Amino acid sequence: MSAFVMSDKYPKLCKAIENFGYDIIPSDKILQFNTPEQRHIDMQMLKINNDIFLLKECNNLKRLRENKDYNIILCKNNIDGKYPHCVALNCLYISGKLYGREEAIDVSVKNYCKENGIEIVDVKQGYTRCSTAVIGKNSAITADSTIYNALTKNGIDVLKIDSGSIRLDGYDYGFIGGACTMIDDGTVAFFGDIKTHPNFRKIERFCIIHNVKIINLAENKPLTDVGGAVKI
């Protein structure tokens, strides 16, 4: 299956990804979350290798069970819209480790990590996945100091950028991880135009170092946190 799961609130961005030959599977609308986050896939789904964790409330996405390429695991607990309990699946899996606010991670994920020998690295920032742009198997970009320190300590090459300059309706600003997705191993696509970010040159150099091409899905438009996109 060649598809991305993401919010369909931004049809032009969805169409831009479809133009690369992918289908779009719309994320669910989770009413327990604050309005700007209700369709954010990085709040609803966590993919670790060929296993996909879903919130119990994701009624539409449960049809992914029909795809035999993946093992769908539903969360044990009902989601709570209050932070940090809302970030049960907003975790970052990179280089064989899972990063997240451990107290908030759903028990199904914790049990899975224990059974599969995956270390959970506790970080203060609960919005771990949406705060981090994965640029490669061993490289990432974030504005969060706690994530930067944790990743760096574990051998990940991390670019630290300034907070802000990313649009997220209803909030002062959004996060870099929610504003991009890896189209393939050598291409990162930004939701909006990365050139509008004040750290664009640093980001551009970092991507060049890691042999990653940058694509803007909406030229001359604000960089926007749409909750990222999960490739399946």
Rank of each mutant, 00 (worst) to 15 (best):
M1Y: 08
S2R: 09
S2C: 06
V5L: 10
Y10L: 12
P11M: 09
P11Q: 12
K12S: 15
K12V: 14
C14V: 10
E18I: 05
F20L: 10
D23S: 14
I25S: 04
I25D: 01
D28H: 00
K29F: 07
I30K: 05
L31S: 14
L31W: 06
F33G: 03
T35M: 06
P36G: 03
I41Y: 00
M45D: 00
K47H: 08
K47M: 13
N50D: 15
N50A: 12
L54T: 05
L55G: 05
L55T: 08
K56Y: 11
K56R: 15
N60H: 13
L61K: 07
R65A: 14
E66L: 14
E66H: 14
E66V: 12
D69M: 09
I73T: 09
C75V: 05
C75Y: 00
K76W: 05
K76I: 08
N77L: 09
I79N: 01
D80M: 09
K82F: 14
V87F: 08
A88N: 08
L89E: 02
N90D: 06
S95T: 07
K97C: 08
E102N: 12
E102P: 01
E103Q: 10
A104G: 10
S108H: 00
V109K: 02
N111G: 08
E115M: 15
E115R: 14
G117C: 12
I120C: 04
D122T: 05
V123T: 02
V123W: 00
Y127E: 04
T128E: 01
T128G: 02
T132W: 00
K137I: 13
T142L: 11
D144V: 08
N149A: 15
N149S: 15
A150S: 12
D157L: 09
V158H: 01
L159S: 02
L159K: 03
D162H: 13
S165Q: 07
I166M: 09
R167F: 14
Y171V: 08
Y171C: 10
D172R: 11
G177L: 05
G177P: 02
C180L: 09
M182K: 13
D184N: 15
G186L: 00
A189Y: 05
F190I: 09
F191A: 02
G192P: 03
I194A: 13
K195D: 07
T196W: 03
P198I: 12
P198S: 08
P198A: 11
N199S: 14
R205Q: 15
I208G: 13
H210I: 11
H210P: 08
L217G: 00
E219G: 07
L223V: 09
T224N: 03
G227L: 06
G228D: 04
A229M: 04
A229G: 12
A229I: 04
I232Q: 06
